[in-house]
Amino acid sequence: MEKLSGIQENREFVEARETSRNWGTMLVWALVLGLLAILGLGLARAQEGPIGIGRNVPEFTLTTFDGEQLNINKSRGKVVLVNFWASWCKPCQQEAAELEEAYQNFKDRDVIFLGVDYVDTEKEALAYLEKFQITYANGPDLGTKISQAFRIRGVPETFIIDRNGIIVDIKIGPYTSLAEIENALQTALEQ
């Protein structure tokens, strides 16, 4: 009798061990697969590049240097050009004057320009706007939230959004000519 209960105990012991082992196994698998999933997602994100053509524009509010609040959702029905720039960015200067010129040509045709100033200091940014006599709305990318939403890789990058809030054109690096900007806007307007 005693012996039997001893076996019984032993069996319980073995079973307890088995269950704890099963839990351990499951935990190990969860960790391994979780790690792989995180790496996969991270990799997918790294490979994704900027937010794609045909996607909805991410929601954001730009606080301009003048303190005005511009919400992207309020610009439905108009074509919006979002340009990421910075005063320390040399290539940005190549397109600055052309962007302003395009703005002058298109501002009466339901087109809004938004300049998002990426990781910049206010004094230099204002000097830059002054230098290129830029008149369209510009503001800092507070908390680098807008640039993260668009997943930009660097500056300059420019996104054109159509009347329905869909991204229709992306330019990585500076525009090389006024015509290039105007063609892109024209296409967006005609859509």
Partner: peptide
Amino acid sequence: STQACAQWRATIRE
């Protein structure tokens, strides 16, 4: 050494 960082340091100084 980037220009952006130099501007940040200038901001701190100000």
